[in-house]
Design a protein around this nucleic acid. Sequence first.
DNA 1: CCTCCACAGGAAGCGCAGGAGT
DNA 2: ACTCCTGCGCTTCCTGTGGAGG
Length: 421
Amino acid sequence: MGIVYFLGVWMRVEEILSRPSIFRDRNVLSPHFIPDTLLHRDREIESIVRILAPSSKRMKPKSIFIYGKTGTGKTSTVKHIMKFSDQLCAIFAYVNCRIYNSKYKVLQKVGKTFIGELDKTGFGLSHIYERLVAFAAGKQIIIILDEIDMVKDVDDLLYMLGRSNDEIIDGGITIIGISNSLSFKERLDARSKSSLYEDEMVFAPYSASQIHDILKERSKIGFEPDVVQESALNLIAAISAQTSGDARYALRLLIRAGEVADSKRLKTVTDREVETARMNVEDDVIIEAVSTLPEHQQILLLGLATLTTGGSSYAKLGGGGEGAGAANVDGIEPFFMSGELYEQYAKTCNALGRQKRSARWYREYLTDLEMLGLISMVETSTGIRGRSRLIKLCYDAKRLKPILEKSLSCGIAGGHSDGKS
DNA sequence: CCTCCACAGGAAGCGCAGGAGT
DNA sequence: ACTCCTGCGCTTCCTGTGGAGG
């Protein structure tokens, strides 16, 4: 029986693997792929190279802050520029601050990029710093801090890196900060602001025709010839341009549409596959945003989704007075009071058999979730006692809820364990 | 005007994990 | 094997904020 079952599965796998696919090279279609020529970002590349040019004459370039919405090619552009390290006579370190989100982690990551011995934890911050300063002597180092707004103690980090330039002999450290949060600048203290914002650049969202060009270019290599119909490309470009000109979203949609066509054994990708793929991609976006969150942030989101889909809400911003049960009027997600949400969070913890975190830590979670763009908060003004915040979910609660429930019940929640349990 | 309420957010401190040094 | 050091996640305590209500 077992052997028969195994043979059945094996034959099925064989069949799937040998099935002809319309994909030629899927990697090319990934948003993380850096093509040799970056379309519609020539001006930005030129400007950044011009700013960094002094390093080729052994002078420290100015630090740059790059701002732009998701999928506007910030990371791709900077990674593209990293290819010119020889011409610029500089060495680059790329740090994704979503993963390395404290000054210690950032410095450690930079350290181990250049100095092999630092490839383990346990070194003190000052030790790593001194090794880095010694290493930087006679070199121009460019540190790219992608999603820099994710670093908790970013002021300390920027101050430290800025100060290092006084100690490095005949060399320097330049920072390229990348963020999609416009409000990040206001959070910085004056000293770090002046050190990071020596030069500033804004990446505008791609237009529909620019996204179309990008998709066309990639699908030429990514798919077999004549697979993706022109109208399908136009549709993806139009959808993506509508939702904030996000090229990453467009590429994801293209891959998904290809997969839909593949699974139906079709030879072409048409509008219909794009429409089908659209729903999947929106779920993908939510899953990606949520799956790496720590367990208690997921529970908190689940609590908020529960309130949104059926709980009481604060309908003040809809124009009314204080009201209950007014969820989802006109498709607008309602706001909830901080205290109300904490209660729901505690209930959800209880239902899941988890120990709830303190209200103080809960407020930290709220700040984190807001920074990730999963929730939005507004300070209360009139109508409520004292100073509080009203909290709103940024995603469709009905879609989010099952995803969170699945994630939490499978126990796959959370990048970080809690230390204590 | 004063007190209460409901919350925001800073500071201090605790226990734990993990590496360095002895 | 032991102590020391450091970062991290978290709690507890505290001060500040600002509208409501007496």
